[in-house]
Nucleic acid binder design. Sequence first.
DNA 1: AGGCTTTTCGGGAGCGCTCCCACGCACCCT
DNA 2: AGGGTGCGTGGGAGCGCTCCCGAAAAGCCT
Lengths: 350, 350
Amino acid sequence: MNANSSRPGTPRGGQASPTLEDLASAAGVSRSTASRAINGGSKVSAKAQAAVDAAIVALGYTPNRAARSLVTRRAGSVALVIPEPDARVMMDPYFAAVITGVNEALRGTDLQLVLLMSRAGDDSARTLRYLRGGHVDGAIVVSHHRTDDWVETLGATGLPTVFIGRPWDTGSGIPYVDLDNFEGGRLAARHLASLGRTTLATVAGPTDMTAAVDRLDGWLQGLRDAGLQPGPVIHGDFTTTGGAAAAGRLLGLAPGVDGVFAASDLMALGVVDALRGMGRRVPEDVAVVGFDNHAIQASNGLGLTTVAHPMVDMASAAGHLLVSAIGSPGEHVAPVVYPAELVVRASTVP
Amino acid sequence: MNANSSRPGTPRGGQASPTLEDLASAAGVSRSTASRAINGGSKVSAKAQAAVDAAIVALGYTPNRAARSLVTRRAGSVALVIPEPDARVMMDPYFAAVITGVNEALRGTDLQLVLLMSRAGDDSARTLRYLRGGHVDGAIVVSHHRTDDWVETLGATGLPTVFIGRPWDTGSGIPYVDLDNFEGGRLAARHLASLGRTTLATVAGPTDMTAAVDRLDGWLQGLRDAGLQPGPVIHGDFTTTGGAAAAGRLLGLAPGVDGVFAASDLMALGVVDALRGMGRRVPEDVAVVGFDNHAIQASNGLGLTTVAHPMVDMASAAGHLLVSAIGSPGEHVAPVVYPAELVVRASTVP
DNA sequence: AGGCTTTTCGGGAGCGCTCCCACGCACCCT
DNA sequence: AGGGTGCGTGGGAGCGCTCCCGAAAAGCCT
């Protein structure tokens, strides 16, 4: 004789989680009433509501997400799409900030964050299939490059989507959250010019990302505003070593450089170290401005003048945008652009 | 008259995804046969299999996860539990590595990674409810502290779980993946001793994490092995600023210190900067050993001698462990401990 | 060729939930 | 007192899938 006489189809370990029916009979109401009590108790008497609430606690009831999903056609989760090779994710604190922010926005909703990291090529097709397969109720896409075609493909599916960082193609009115990168670049130029620096160079980011292009455009505009000649422009990859390498080339191109704007703090750190390694004092000989105001900027003891980039807040805003887009589909959502702000520290002002 | 005459109950935007029934009729077979063909085509004739395969492509069919979940009682996802305040996650590259590694292991399975960041207190109860609610098929828990009770609570639910980092309580035979932190600490001590350094201090990690304790124990054992007196032990919080602060206190306690072991690269970086700020040369006056061999170690231009910590590989191993645990529940899974390895660089050997 | 096993197939049932609809009941108005 | 007008409730249907089981088809034996 088998000791396991519990109802069939029970989950692993025999700990059958109670069903709505169980809950209802425990509360002395019908399945329907119990369901109503759980989902925003309108049209439920106070007595019934209380009975159900009590039964929930007593039984430790948790609604079966799959069953609910099946009928509501809502997945109860949103995807965070990170179209980067994984190695990159490791290096860059940006993504950690994004995850943190989005998670923060989702707290309080019953939406779960599922992470989709997709490499280029075959993997992105798989990811796309997943997204359009109704497995998620919405998606947040970060850091897409020019070659990524998420805007068109996701736009076509009708899946609520929010971009973090302005996409290349904004024609279709895709909602996004971005920093005023142009203004950030301009602020950096204006700041260095106001310090009397005249030979100014920049270590820009990859040309296939809007943030990098905007920062560079703003930088050049700022130089023009100040009546200065645009100095060397070197493109880095947003990493510390990339910044250091760029600084080396930079000194070759313009030995008399007295101000550098690096389009990320990581690159700025590399620039500072490389400059020092080559005998330049920072900020006396060369003033350096970074971008992001990331905590890491303090890591070499020198405070870094930088443009603030509230990544967590922005990611959180994107999360909220997505949640509201899911709530009221079809409604137009305006882009959100955060203002840029300069934080002055010792790398430009001793 | 309404143009939207598609079948009722269709998902948003009218793009009704085809059901199994649609697929079956398109392929000219029954629902059952189509189902069998999709899930590991045993007991399906080659002809039927081919017809179904063709129909899948033609219709762009994707199985409805919710419906499948409902009957199989498998969620199709695993949780990554990060019991840390979000701010911490941002700072520490460790978690990014973990996410990368786990994701890597899940690639190829149809399991999705869902991220659960739970603060202490109320939130952890919510997280636990989620985990035991059958919403995930397994969980990976990282970086738990002594006060976390994930081991007991998750152990009790029977949910397949793998820990990254040895938990405090391993009595119940919970599977985990860890680094040989003890040996790592011992290697650091042995290395510094072999260089002729005699006044050795350590900046250890928080006392409520096994990794920190093990590294410290190994360090002390290594000193004993070398016949050296244990120097000052200062506890940091694994951050750069914490390391810098610790270095300051350290010089007060032992002005003649000529070797420091910091239990993380981030802290080591802080230590190096602080030491230099106080006029000590590294490595001439003080040799510094870090831990983790993280990419960031190169950020200040000085190569950091450190203990390798293949976090991505370890996280990936944990992922594979979990996948196999889900596949064959009840089976005992042995812990995996990665060997520690010293990477010698300029912070100890000029 | 007839009876047997083996393989392949199709229909029915049901997973746990939400939604729709119809019913009962208290309440208020004329 | 009779007939609305509500609100609160319960039962039925069905979401898309997998699994079970009996039927049909195909292969094998004596």
